[in-house]
Write a protein that binds this DNA or RNA. Structure first.
Length: 421
RNA sequence: GGAGAGGUGGCUGAGUGGUCGAAGGCACCGGAUUGCUAAUCCGGCGUACGCUUAUUUGUGUACCGAGGGUUCGAAUCCCUUCCUCUCCGCCA
């Protein structure tokens, strides 16, 4: 959520920033609503002041044994006015909040302007496409031959869009999770967290999935809970309503969780194999930091995700999402894509974003600045990284002409010394 | 699931209708004192929003888990709800 005050100060700039995301926002209507709301606040508070002083007087008079029935009647009438105006005030405040909650963040000045993913510039790449003197196979062909994924059997349990790893496939997934968590906690300074996988409305409002994207989420109506679409939700909301001491920042969390996404409207989009699933595993990184540090931190965080891929020796590239493609809550996002030679495609495995104070304002996450005053922190997060497509890339990049997979060396200790699947 | 207890400021802990944004203690910050340290003394010390204003300052309102009610007036009384703890039951 953005601060209404920034809209007041520079409505034209706000309109232009939203326009760069392809949104036409009636900023003036928001400001009118805000003005109305503030007038109501002033009137209500004036009446409350009168009521408070009158009530105090009534108390004193009664104590002195005097009659106060006339004053009591007058205050009762004020009370009725207050209730009516206060109701109006609450409605105006909620109306404004509802609208602000549904408006996306401003893109940072360094974000390239564009309309769609076609306009996202590639800013660097690492490694090389593997030299494969044979026709590289897609992972679903490899996996079936190796007997490590069970797509059809998963469908009998849960329908399309679910996978079931077996044998070395399951172990590889577990090995990758351990490897990534060890790397982030051991070398990158993150604290490991195992959060709940079910969360309430407030958590999802805090990070921006609600109110706009409810159709993307699985929910459990009986209990008012939702399955998390990413560990970002529980990790970021861990500090909802919290004020950090300045020396506690940056606070870096990492955690492994499954992620649940309905993927409504994604039918037909790269759904073959493990490219897109309703449930997948992911290791996530979340950072809370001082506003001045957040852009440097975004580079660091992205580097941490890249470190995973570099240590695995996988060919990838990094792109900057343009203004037209950037996520709802984000001010700037880098996507990391792995090369999948069996599909001749780049697969997104990580998305690293700086949300500035957008989530912090919604979730009320603050720190005490140099003046001792509470100030919103900046939040960042990045996948570090998502499992299914990482498995896909390992299978497709590391496949041999006989269909076997030579495992990256760094994973072998996690695989009980196995070198090849 | 059943029975009971409780949710107050960074922590602890008073407060059962008015002068309570809330005693006391701890922690923290500033100052004084003291060869040093410790101790002592004085002062300060919540958050949000509105108005004011030079983002100084001032002032007002709200907030004692959340929501509603009673009342001239609610931390305090009533209702609903959430959460925590203890015991019992069940259970990985």
């Amino acid at each position: 959520m953005l601060d209404i005050r920034t809209l007041r100060e520079n409505p034209d700039a706000a309109k232009a920033k939203w326009a760069s995301r392809g949104l036409d926002v009636d900023v003036q209507a928001l400001l009118d609503l805000d003005d109305h709301r503030r007038q109501l606040i002033t009137r209500v508070e004036e009446l409350q002041q009168t009521r408070n002083s009158s009530s105090k007087e009534i108390g004193l008079r009664k104590k002195a044994g005097e009659d106060a029935s006339e004053a009591m009647e007058a205050v009762r009438k004020i009370g009725d006015q207050i209730s009516a105006l206060d109701k109006e005030k609450t409605e105006a405040t909620q109306a404004l909040e509802t609208q602000l909650m549904s408006l996306p963040n401003f893109p940072h000045a360094s974000v390239p302007v564009g309309h769609s993913e076609a306009d996202n510039p590639v800013i660097r790449s690492w490694g090389e496409k593997p030299e494969q003197a044979f026709e590289p196979k897609p992972h679903w062909v490899l996996a079936e031959a190796l007997g490590i994924f069970e797509f059809e059997r998963a469908a009998t349990l849960s329908g399309a869009g679910f996978s079931c790893l077996t044998g070395a496939g399951a172990r590889l997934s577990r090995a990758l999770i351990s490897f990534m968590l060890d790397l982030h906690t051991g070398e990158h300074g993150y604290t490991e967290v195992q959060p709940p996988f079910l969360v309430n409305d407030d958590a999802l409002l805090g990070t921006g999935q609600l109110p706009k994207f409810a159709e993307e989420l699985y929910r459990v109506p009986e209990d008012g809970l939702w399955l998390i679409p990413t560990a970002e939700v529980p990790l970021t909301n861990l500090y909802r309503d919290h004020i950090f001491a300045a020396d506690e920042l940056p606070r870096n969390l990492t955690g492994y969780t499954p992620c649940f996404r309905r993927e409504a409207g994604a039918a037909g989009k790269m759904t073959r194999g493990m490219n897109r699933l309703h449930q997948f595993d992911k290791v996530e990184m979340v950072t809370f930091c001082k506003p001045a540090d957040s852009y440097a931190r975004l580079e660091t965080l992205t580097g941490h995700a890249e470190a995973v891929l570099q240590k695995l020796g996988l060919h990838y590239r990094v792109i900057t999402l343009c203004t037209g493609d950037i996520g709802f809550s984000s001010a700037k996002t880098y996507d990391i894509e792995l090369w999948a030679p069996g599909q001749q495609a780049w697969l997104e495995v990580s998305s690293c974003s700086n949300f500035e104070d957008y989530q912090a304002r919604r979730a009320k996450i603050r720190y005490r600045n140099e003046n001792g005053k509470p100030e919103l922190v900046h939040t960042l997060n990045g996948s570090g990284v998502a499992l299914p497509r990482l498995l896909v890339a390992i299978l497709e990049q590391c496949q041999q002409d006989d269909g076997s997979i030579v495992l990256p060396e760094i994973l072998r200790p996690y695989m009980g010394g196995m070198e090849r699947i």
